[in-house]
Write a protein that binds this DNA or RNA. Structure first.
Lengths: 293, 293
DNA sequence: TCCATGACCCAAGCATCGCTTATGGGGCGT
DNA sequence: ACGCCCCATAAGCGATGCTTGGGTCATGGA
């Protein structure tokens, strides 16, 4: 005997509880011989009878009562698992670990999670802030389920295998003090002093300026878009910010202008392949996509 | 979805524990697609992925870890059930409730149970004394597994369905004071005073005497064969006793003679149909049969 | 760069498992 | 004595489920 077939154990339980093979067969929607055969086979594997057949039903032997106790546990556990999984599938429960870059965490994420909390009270979403590379690493390592990241030219190239789902694409604006003269092209600012953002943002700024024929003089560096705007308003330099950062906060004393030469920023989600099949993760992704438009 | 198929749950567990579908397939002695198909079907029933497939194996989702916990309980319970039933099948455990009539309980049963306790230390046998009708009723009611009973002409007729297994057949002896004259037939004792045993024994005595042409005068009644012999030795009457009662105890001052007219007593076991398939019960039955010869 | 390896999935074939139908025995009630 | 309700067995056939033989993708070494 290899090991007990759990299906037969449950069939045995149905018989023991129903009190007769025929009654169990009716309960199971089968015919009587089907149940009888399963039982006979189980008893052969076990090495002795589990039920004594009487004229009016069956009565468990000592082995039968022992097995019945175990079978009850198994059935209960199986039922509980079904409930638990149904809860997860129907979004009555579940936990999603979301990582997002700071400006998204300030704008897009709160509205999305607000909607979600209202519609799916059982769903827990844990938010952590991180820049795209760290965010993707967290997903890859299994420390997060979903990462909201951005890239300036196409999706951010990730080591390893992660799926990408675009959420939002936006222009990058030039940010100037409110009183400055009109600017038509990036080249006009070759002598300006610049305020740089995060590492990748600075790299993009440098690339755009080089395409326009100069190397920008970066004096100040901050990845906080409120600080950027305040520095610009104070006349300490010019900068670039994606449209959503300007929507989230607009300091008095700054002016923004969309320049094609600054390219566009693509925001999207990355996750482990197949994770979009997980209901909870899919729901969070959908809520973020909905909040983006 | 009806309910989770426990087999698939265990297959899922094998995969989660092995860390990859292929490894689980090797463990199970199957090919990889077989396991893959089971898993896919389980996930379809569950309504979402349980494992995220990566390039080097799988990693459980939230639903997967939830199911894994349940699956571990199920597997443990199944394994424990297997052990438990194997113990019962191989007589390392088990309990048998035996009912026996008094004179057997005094002779045959102790030797049988002694042998059994030596050979099968795990086997517990509970003994209770009862006259055949009560003993059979106990078996029928499920209060006992095995009854050692006797009948004077064939097996005792039992209401209900019980199986009969003969154990021993013995002559019934006439019991006389040691000094009495020789007796060749029952009819010579038509004027004697009689000592009667249990209800059924008295009925048998009366039937035998009637066949010999007289009705016995029963003066004393006891179902204790030691008391019977002492009364006979004291000259207070004559009696009949089965051979085994005389083997168990022989009072000085009594003489016994085998008379064909007294018939024979049949000792045997009764049990619920199929109960002889239960290893523990069969072992007790076998030990009793062995002790009888 | 290219191949070898190991993971997984998909499609198709076929054997086996397992359910059904059909039949028969046995006990119990009317 | 008949009918009903237990159960077991045998035979047949359909569906489940395992295998074989493809193919994709990512990783690691030559």
């Amino acid at each position: 005997m290899d090991v007990l077939d759990p299906r037969r154990v449950l069939i045995f339980r149905a018989v023991a509880r129903a009190g007769s093979i025929s009654a169990a067969a009716r309960d199971l929607g089968w015919t009587q011989p089907a149940v009888s055969q399963h039982l006979a086979r189980l008893e052969r594997e076990v090495g002795g009878p589990l039920l004594l057949r009487g004229p009016s039903g069956v009565r468990p032997t000592e082995a039968g009562t022992a097995l019945l106790r175990r079978a009850d546990v198994i059935a209960a556990e199986l039922h509980a698992a079904g409930e638990e999984l149904a809860d997860l599938a129907q979004l009555r429960g579940g936990r999603v670990r979301l990582v997002a870059f700071p400006s998204a965490a300030a704008t897009l994420v709160p509205t999305a999670l607000g909607d979600l909390a209202r519609e799916r009270p059982g769903l827990e979403v844990g938010l952590e802030e991180a820049e795209p590379p760290e965010a993707m690493a967290a997903v890859l390592a299994g420390d997060a389920d979903l990462a909201l990241v951005f890239g300036y030219d196409g999706p951010p190239e990730g080591r390893g295998v992660l799926e990408w789902r675009p959420v939002l694409e936006e222009p990058v604006h030039l940010v100037l003090p409110a009183g400055d003269r009109a600017v038509a092209g990036l080249a006009e600012l070759s002598d300006a002093e610049w305020i740089g953002g995060c590492v990748r943002c600075r790299a993009h700024l440098v690339a755009c300026c080089e395409a326009a024929g100069f190397e920008p003089a970066i004096r100040h560096v901050t990845d906080d878009y409120v600080v950027v705007q305040n520095l610009v308003a104070a006349g300490l330099g010019v900068s670039v910010l994606p449209a959503s950062a300007l929507e989230a906060h607009r300091a008095p004393g700054v002016r923004s202008v969309e320049l094609p030469g600054l390219g566009r920023r693509r925001v999207g989600l990355v996750f482990r392949p197949g994770a979009d099949g997980v209901p909870a993760t899919a729901a969070v992704a959908a809520a973020l996509a909905a909040a983006a438009r």
